[in-house]
Simulated scan of single mutants.
Amino acid sequence: MYDLTKFTLKNMTECGADLRKLGSGADSMEEVSDRIVRYLYEQFVDEQTDRPAFALVRFFKTHLYGELEASLQQHLTAASPDQPSDVLKCLTLLATVGDQPAWNSRYASEGHQVIPLASEQIVAQSPMISQLIKQFGLETSSVLSPDPELLVDLEQKTFNVFHVPAAIASPYVPAQQEFVIPCGIQSVLGFGGMLPSGNIIAVILFSKVPISRNTADMFKTLALNTKMAVLPFDRGTIFRK
């Protein structure tokens, strides 16, 4: 078990080694991502309450609309009057776990199962997504349509973390009245990276314990371990059969 207020380099190394092993024996990226979010939810504990430190942990991946499973395509078209292009980049929820029953299935998510990233202007209208991309150290254009000539450099880059130390009243954390305040969210932390396919993975942690900048920075290393766990499925099976 780990305490976010006392997270050490030794803890980071141990946690990273565990994350890296979570891909062993899996049949899809979804299965690995589910293991990752559950590991993080179960292993980080608030010592004051002996309860999970994170209210909600989610794993997202960008994915082309044309390669989404049928249920996600239908979910998206039901909310849009226009037929999406097969090359539309979508931010797709692969795994979720949290304090409330509805947060433990990606199919139960009302607004985050699949989020179309139709243009830079559309992304800019979503403060959390646009800030996550910015803090990762990316341009929105490289997320929507990676330049093949730059892809190797981006894929090998160590991304920064997305860190909101004080979630309450932050313009980058939506649903303040419905989620942040009633659920006691203190900080938000996101980490991830770019896969060889040009798709982005991002794990987002909504914490009931304040997360310092020093602790947040240690998750850069955990991002690399997470990437290694899902890497075998980058051009393979994404969704559970």
Results as ranks from 00 to 15, higher is better:
F179A: 06
Q177P: 04
A169G: 09
H163F: 10
P165A: 14
P182A: 11
Q176A: 07
Q176M: 09
G193K: 00
S187D: 09
H163K: 13
Y172L: 13
S187L: 07
G193P: 02
I168W: 08
I185C: 06
F191S: 01
L189G: 05
I181G: 02
L189C: 10
P165F: 12
P196N: 00
P165C: 12
G190Q: 04
A167I: 06
G193S: 03
V173H: 03
F162Y: 13
M194Y: 04
S197Q: 04
C183I: 05
Q186A: 12
V180W: 01
P165S: 13
V180I: 15
I185S: 01
F191L: 05
I181N: 06
A175H: 15
P171A: 12
P196Y: 00
V180A: 05
A167Y: 02
V188N: 02
S187H: 11
I185T: 02
Q176D: 07
A169E: 15
P171C: 15
S197Y: 08
V173M: 11
V180T: 05
P196Q: 00
A169M: 11
I181S: 06
E178S: 13
V173T: 06
Q176L: 09
F162G: 01
L195T: 00
H163S: 14
C183D: 11
S170Q: 09
P196W: 00
Q186T: 07
F179N: 07
A166Q: 10
E178Y: 10
G192W: 01
G198Y: 02
F179H: 13
F191N: 01
V164S: 02
A166E: 11
M194C: 08
N199R: 07
P171F: 13
S170F: 13
S170T: 09
S187Q: 11
G192S: 08
V188W: 01
A167C: 07
I168S: 13
S187P: 09
E178H: 10
Y172C: 11
S170H: 09
G184W: 00
Y172G: 06
I168C: 12
A167H: 01
S170V: 12
Q177K: 15
G198N: 03
P182M: 12
V188I: 14
P196V: 02
P174G: 07
S197A: 05
M194I: 14
Q176N: 09
C183A: 14
V173S: 04
E178L: 12
V180P: 01
S197C: 07
P174N: 09
G193E: 01
I185R: 01
P165T: 08
E178D: 14
P171R: 12
A169D: 15
N199K: 07
Q177A: 15
H163R: 10
I181L: 05
C183T: 10
L189N: 05
N199S: 12
Q177C: 12
G184F: 00
P174K: 06
G198V: 01
P174M: 04
I168D: 12
F162I: 13
V164D: 00
N199C: 06
A166N: 09
G192Y: 01
P174A: 04
M194R: 03
P174W: 05
P182N: 10
F162H: 04
G198R: 00
P196A: 00
V164T: 05
